[in-house]
């Protein structure tokens, strides 16, 4: 595949659509063509920023109260006087909590670190300190196992042609957020892939900022490399002692699978 052909397929690649074979060919081209690799990264970054802009703004509780009330799905808001009383009580309670919180945790609670948490978990899995919940080398079996256990989309694990040989899977929590993991190896080096719902990244502000600046985001945690990538509705983290390029390749392969949810 040449540069023109590769660039013509940017939409499909960026949106994780199309034939996995096409993604494989694109990845092969990007691996040897730095110009196209940079072009793809720039296009994706612009698209990511535009998407964030289109999504911007949290949902509005008042508006939804009115919508649900008018549809008969919610009781009308209580009387104004009661509402005022409740508000005053809530404010007082909040003030007390904040006072105690400030005393206990000043100067501030450190933000959770996704890199450290995932590196710790990977270490426990790879050292056998935590048993892998489900052992299988079958992509389909692992996928079926996970889909019954997590509420967010989990895709087929990466193919072996991306260098990742899956050996098992399980679920748990990363910083209080529901997560699934795929245990496996790249060239016999243990690697774990953690999958969270994208919204869970709100709990990891440092990584959220970093991946918004550049998707995928690379970092190191001790001896481990970590690559974080937003893939559709998921935040996917690959951790291990394997080279960062190999981890990213695995995530690229992961992204090439269709979202069945």
């Amino acid at each position: 595949m040449n540069c023109n052909e590769t660039r013509q397929h940017w939409d499909l690649y960026h949106d994780s659509e199309g034939d996995p074979a096409l993604h494989f060919q694109i990845n092969e081209h990007l691996a040897v063509c730095p110009d196209c690799a940079q072009w793809f990264a720039q296009q994706s970054r612009l698209e990511h920023l535009l998407t964030e802009k289109l999504k911007a703004g949290p949902w509005t509780p008042d508006l939804w109260d009115r919508v649900l009330t008018s549809a008969g799905l919610k009781r009308p808001v209580p009387s104004r006087r009661l509402f005022l009383l409740a508000s005053v009580a809530a404010c007082a309670a909040a003030a007390v909590v904040l006072l105690f919180w400030g005393k206990l945790f000043s100067p501030g609670v450190p933000a959770q670190d996704l890199a450290r948490l995932s590196a710790d978990w990977h270490e426990r899995l790879s050292q056998g300190e935590e048993p892998v919940q489900f052992h299988s080398e079958s992509d389909l079996a692992v996928e079926a196992y996970l889909r019954k256990r997590v509420s967010f989309p989990v895709r087929c694990p990466p193919r072996k042609d991306a260098g990742f040989a899956v050996s098992g899977a399980g679920t748990g929590e990363l910083g209080g957020q529901s997560a699934a993991y795929l245990a496996g190896a790249i060239d016999s080096t243990p690697v774990s892939i953690f999958i969270l719902h994208k919204d869970s990244l709100d709990k990891f502000p440092d990584q959220l900022r970093a991946v918004r600046r550049k998707n995928p985001h690379h970092c190191r945690e001790g001896d481990y490399q970590m690559v974080l990538r937003l893939i559709d509705r998921n935040a996917v983290v690959a951790v291990g002692r394997a080279p960062a390029d190999s981890l990213e390749k695995v995530l690229n392969a992961y992204a090439s699978y269709p979202d069945h949810h």
Partner: peptide, 10 residues
């Protein structure tokens, strides 16, 4: 000039 300037087929 960006990478597109020297776009060639690999």
């Amino acid at each position: 000039p960006g990478p597109g300037d020297q776009r060639g087929d690999s």
